[in-house]
Design a protein around this nucleic acid. Sequence first.
DNA 1: TGAGTTTTTCTCGATCTGAGGAGAACTTAG
DNA 2: CTAAGTTCTCCTCAGATCGAGAAAAACTCA
Lengths: 263, 263
Amino acid sequence: MVDDGTRGEADEREFLAAYDPHAYAPAAVTVDVVAMTIRAGEPLVLMVRRGASPQRGRWALPGGFVRAQDGPGGPADPDLPDAALRVLAEKTALPATLHLEQLGTYGARDRDPRMRVFSVAYMLLAPDLPDPGPGRDTAEVAWVPWRDLGHGGTARHEPAFDHAGIVADAVERARAKLEYTSLATAFLPPVFTITDLRAVYEAVWDRPLHAANFHRKILAAPGFVEDTGGLADRGGSGGGRRPRLYRAGGSAALHPPLLRSAQ
Amino acid sequence: MVDDGTRGEADEREFLAAYDPHAYAPAAVTVDVVAMTIRAGEPLVLMVRRGASPQRGRWALPGGFVRAQDGPGGPADPDLPDAALRVLAEKTALPATLHLEQLGTYGARDRDPRMRVFSVAYMLLAPDLPDPGPGRDTAEVAWVPWRDLGHGGTARHEPAFDHAGIVADAVERARAKLEYTSLATAFLPPVFTITDLRAVYEAVWDRPLHAANFHRKILAAPGFVEDTGGLADRGGSGGGRRPRLYRAGGSAALHPPLLRSAQ
DNA sequence: TGAGTTTTTCTCGATCTGAGGAGAACTTAG
DNA sequence: CTAAGTTCTCCTCAGATCGAGAAAAACTCA
């Protein structure tokens, strides 16, 4: 049975009262972006050196507040992905092609000492990007190797807040999705070789793969890559046969998957 | 270079000013729970009939506001999973064993007509639960088959707000994770048979599987299940050999995976 | 011209898969 | 008690797939 009338209105009154800004201490909704790329076989994450306390001088993920409503600072973000792209664009130039996917939301009580902050983390994958110039309100922006951002241990740059954990979640997500999706092409320009693709897998998984078997499996997976008909120019050092050029195929899922555990 | 001093303080002032409750219209953070179970081979989701407008009388996911701070309504939620379990416990009794995982956060501008709402959705998997009694502020709570909640089309119960999409995301997540993880055991009691496990896969994937090959693959995946040494009592209708009893093994990832595309 | 490099194809034994068959263990009907 | 039916478990086998290595193809550089 539907309980209508008074109960219903009470529910709605409760909804609005519970979020009367005067009744509760403030809580913020932010987006943080784990922007990943691969440069010379090294996986990198875009990090921002904090210019303000707390945690001044430490690396943090680029992020910012979600604009919930139109206000003096600008129009509202229509959706969360818009907010993610907006805050990232304030730190660096966005590439023409990118893959953006939501990673998760972090809201532990004491993750930020100033107030209760709920951060929606996004993972952004892009081909190698130019080095960013300093943003307008940030002291320093840089691409930092994944391996330097680990939890404790040998990490050279311990990130601020819980951002080390967020980066670790992004790295694990990327490693897993390379197994059963065609996500690896998001790290590459529109046209690439099978060797380029293998270099992505080797960089992300941090282990060598058998070139001949990789080649066979990629071409056996329907819709992963499609032949452009062209060959690379080459002429670089080392010599070797000119590789064929491919572009990303239409399918998002890989059948059969490429398993990390396998060779 | 670290830009310290004035810039840093300005940054922090901006942080606090931007979320001065008086300066901005309110935005809410809620949790919505997609609680899933399987009863008699039918996958079900826990839904709540809305007692208040808007969308009065339609089915919605159980959810509620995240308590960002201690307040008159109770103590703050230490983290988002705590909030998810709290709001679900207000609607139904929680099972002894459950799997809770974050699904994603939904924040499109017009998803709720009353105000800007950011909803962190959680997926909860549990063994078959008793039917819930009506909660204290809800007209009706029921387990509804997945297939009745689809977007448009033949759906018999069109859910409120964007909850059809959230359920669809949860269903797809569950289907995918059954391939690569031992998640299926979350739908089963502590002790189960291989046939019970196969029934979970068949219900979630909505297609029959070859019993003999399924049996072989489950036992070949290290750490998926472990033999308890016991046999089922049986005595039910139909007869048949008494099946062995297993419990969930320690490993979370399945190697090799069980692919949906395969038989 | 020849050595070295990289890409691509081929080979082969081992393993895995899908499909069906059949034995084992049990219930129920007669 | 026997026979028929059901369910669980194991076996078989042809075909596909995999890992590892060899080798051919195509190119650079000295």
